[in-house]
Deep mutational scan, measured.
Amino acid sequence: AQVHVDGVTYDFDNPEEAEKFAREMAKRKGGTVEVKNDQWHVE
């Protein structure tokens, strides 16, 4: 699973880890999390 944050792509073998990371980053940035094509996007 991939997580996109500020133009940087992070690869995770485990989708749950990807989701956890995406939500944590969004919380830190005060942003939102979107899922597109099985990829997490932190805005």
Rank of each mutant, 00 (worst) to 15 (best):
A1E: 03
V33A: 11
E43I: 15
D38V: 03
V33I: 10
E34S: 15
F12Y: 01
D6A: 06
D6S: 07
N37K: 09
T32R: 13
N37W: 07
W40P: 07
T9L: 08
G31K: 07
V33Y: 04
Q2H: 11
D6E: 07
V3W: 00
Q2E: 04
W40F: 13
R23D: 13
E17Y: 02
V42F: 05
E17C: 15
V35I: 13
E34Q: 13
A22Q: 04
M25D: 03
P15L: 12
D11Q: 14
D6N: 12
D38I: 04
N37D: 12
D11M: 14
R23A: 09
P15M: 12
Y10I: 06
V35E: 06
G30M: 08
E24R: 02
G7V: 00
K29Q: 12
V33M: 07
K27P: 02
A18L: 02
H41V: 14
V33N: 05
A1K: 13
G31P: 03
E43P: 07
K29N: 13
H41N: 06
H41P: 05
G30R: 07
Q39N: 10
F21G: 01
W40K: 05
P15R: 12
A1H: 14
E17H: 02
V5Y: 12
F12E: 01
V3H: 00
W40T: 06
T9M: 10
E43S: 14
A1Q: 12
N37M: 10
A22Y: 06
Y10M: 03
K20W: 09
A22E: 09
D38Q: 10
Q39T: 10
D6W: 05
H4T: 13
T32P: 05
A26Y: 00
N37G: 13
G7D: 05
G30P: 04
D11V: 14
V8A: 08
V35Q: 11
H4V: 15
M25E: 12
M25A: 08
R23T: 10
H4A: 06
K36T: 11
V35S: 08
D38A: 08
E19F: 02
D6Y: 07
G30L: 07
T32A: 08
D38P: 07
H41I: 14
E43K: 14
E24K: 04
K29R: 13
E16W: 12
A22V: 05
E17T: 04
N14A: 05
K20H: 09
D11C: 15
K36F: 13
Y10S: 01
A26W: 00
R28I: 14
V8E: 08
G31E: 07
W40M: 08
V5L: 10
A18D: 02
T32F: 11
E16T: 09
A1G: 08
K20N: 11
E17M: 06
D13T: 08
A22S: 01
F21S: 02
H4S: 08
P15A: 13
V42W: 05
E17Q: 08
M25Y: 06
K20F: 04
F12W: 00
F12K: 00
E19A: 04
R23P: 08
A18V: 01
E34Y: 14
K27R: 09
D13G: 06
H41W: 15
D13A: 10
Q39F: 07
D38F: 07
A18N: 01
N14H: 05
K27Y: 04
A22I: 06
R28P: 04
Q39R: 09
V35Y: 15
D6M: 09
V8M: 11
H4L: 13
M25G: 00
Y10P: 03
V33G: 04
T9R: 11
P15F: 12
V3Q: 00
V5I: 13
N37C: 15
G31A: 10
E16V: 10
N37V: 08
K20A: 13
A18Y: 03
E34T: 15
K20M: 07
W40L: 09
G31Q: 08
F12H: 00
R28Y: 08
V5D: 02
F21P: 00
D11N: 14
D38S: 11
W40S: 06
G31S: 10
V5S: 05
K20G: 03
E19G: 00
E17G: 01
A22R: 05
F21I: 02
G31L: 12
H41T: 12
K27W: 02
K20S: 09
T9I: 14
V35R: 14
K27M: 07
R23N: 14
E24A: 06
E34N: 13
D6Q: 05
V33S: 05
V3M: 02
D13E: 11
G7S: 03
E17D: 13
R23E: 14
V42P: 05
T9D: 04
D38E: 10
G30F: 07
D11L: 14
W40N: 05
G30N: 10
A18R: 01
K29F: 15
E16P: 00
A22H: 02
K20E: 12
G31C: 15
D13L: 09
M25F: 02
K29G: 10
E16Q: 09
D38K: 10
K20R: 12
W40A: 06
M25N: 04
V33W: 01
N37A: 08
E19K: 00
K36V: 13
M25V: 12
W40Q: 07
E24T: 01
T32M: 09
E16K: 10
N37F: 11
T9W: 13
G7Q: 03
F21T: 01
N14M: 03
V8F: 12
K36I: 14
A1R: 13
G30D: 08
V42A: 05
F12L: 07
E43M: 15
G7A: 01
G30A: 08
Q39S: 11
D13V: 08
A1L: 14
K27T: 11
N14K: 04
A1I: 14
P15N: 12
K20D: 11
Q2T: 12
V33P: 05
V5Q: 01
K27Q: 12
K27L: 06
G31R: 08
V35T: 07
A18E: 02
Q2D: 00
F21R: 03
E34V: 15
H4K: 08
V5H: 07
D38L: 11
F21L: 03
N14W: 03
E17L: 06
V42G: 04
D13H: 04
E24W: 02
V3Y: 00
D13M: 08
K20T: 06
T32I: 12
G7Y: 02
V5K: 02
E16S: 10
H41G: 03
H41K: 06
V35D: 05
D11Y: 15
R23I: 12
H41L: 11
M25P: 00
E34P: 04
A1F: 15
V42M: 05
D6K: 03
D13W: 04
K29L: 15
G31D: 06
K20V: 04
E34I: 15
V5W: 08
F12M: 04
F21N: 03
N37T: 05
A1M: 14
E24D: 10
Q39L: 07
Q39M: 13
D11A: 11
R23S: 08
R28D: 09
V3I: 03
K20Y: 06
K29H: 15
A22N: 02
G7L: 02
E24Q: 06
V33E: 04
R28L: 15
E17N: 03
E34F: 14
K27D: 12
V5E: 02
E34L: 14
K36R: 13
G31T: 11
E43N: 14
V35N: 09
E16M: 10
E24L: 03
N14Q: 04
M25H: 06
T32K: 11
E34H: 15
P15V: 13
D13P: 10
F21W: 07
A1W: 15
N14F: 04
D38H: 11
Q2M: 08
W40Y: 12
K36Y: 13
Y10F: 10
T9V: 15
A26K: 03
G31Y: 12
E19I: 03
T32Y: 13
A22M: 08
V33D: 05
T32V: 12
V8Q: 11
D6G: 10
H41Y: 15
A22L: 11
V3G: 01
G31W: 09
R23L: 11
A22G: 01
A26F: 00
D11G: 05
V3D: 00
H4R: 09
E16H: 09
A18I: 00
E24P: 00
D38Y: 06
A26I: 05
V8W: 11
W40G: 03
D38M: 10
F12T: 01
E16F: 10
V35K: 14
V5P: 01
V8R: 11
H41F: 15
G30E: 06
K36S: 09
G30Y: 07
R23M: 11
T9A: 07
V35M: 14
V35F: 15
Q39W: 06
V42K: 05
V3A: 02
A26V: 05
V8T: 10
V5G: 01
V5N: 02
W40R: 06
V3T: 02
G7N: 06
Y10D: 01
